[in-house]
Design a protein around this nucleic acid. Structure first.
Lengths: 131, 131
DNA sequence: TGATAATATCATATTCACATGATAATATCA
DNA sequence: TGATATTATCATGTGAATATGATATTATCA
């Protein structure tokens, strides 16, 4: 469903939400999540540019959530890594498929996509934190 | 959402449902769908082995639907090309994520997957045919 | 039976997501 | 100021999905 990269991003964000405090090093996070360190490093950087994380360079540096978990929607985390989140495509691959010019599956598929999009755009990191 | 191959398969099946009659050559289908011919050929063959299509070799040969459209579910077409259809995974990538040991997103995500799976397992080719 | 038209199959190429490794830039602190 | 720890960036490798091309197999029909 999600690309590997988007999943890494999501897991990293959830981990940060579950471990509040000072900046966390990529190495520590990579170990905890069992994810390739260098690859995660780039992914974290992208999240920082997207405004989801803050990064601090140098000694005692690392990454932290840029905002409080309850204000970070899953789609904010996932969107940069999965363009599918923006342009929802026709399940039959039609170049143009709209309410005005629908494919045979349009109405049914639209409902499915609606459910999926609602999940990503209404669920926040706060909703996923350990209780 | 679907792999390119699964989408080709779906489009080919819908086209066959919309054009009943004798066997259709891969070349004709590939042209109509604007899809690589040799690649489609293999995909069609896989669909035949999966029991969704019938193939006839030799002159006047080609592919036809193996059953009537209303009895072919979308998941029958898509499953061989998208294993995701079988093992629905945890959106946070946890190796094990179940009702007994759920991740933070488990309940919400389960509902999303349920909707998606219902679409593929209850919609038939007949539902998608042109009226 | 031989020519032809079609699927079946095999071998190879291409592309892109994913991953790795090395270096540069930047901040901290003795 | 210099040593060190960390993110930022660049260059490259790898594997799987996608695609192409060539050949083998099988059926039809004059």
């Amino acid at each position: 469903m999600l690309s590997q990269t988007a999943e890494y991003a999501l897991r990293a964000a959830v981990w940060l939400a579950d471990h509040p405090g000072g900046p966390v090093r990529v190495g520590e996070l990579a170990t905890a999540l069992k994810v390739p360190k260098n690859y995660l490093s780039k992914t974290m950087h992208q999240m920082a540019r997207a405004g989801v994380l803050s990064s601090v360079r140098g000694k005692n540096g690392g990454f932290t959530l840029a905002r409080k978990p309850s204000s970070i929607k899953l789609i904010d985390i996932v969107r940069p890594f999965d363009p599918m989140m923006d342009r929802r495509e026709c399940v039959l691959g039609r170049p143009t498929c709209s309410d005005a010019s629908p494919c045979g599956a349009h109405e049914r598929w639209k409902a499915v996509m609606q459910t999926t999009m609602t999940f990503f755009s209404q669920t926040t990191l706060g909703d996923l934190m350990k209780r």
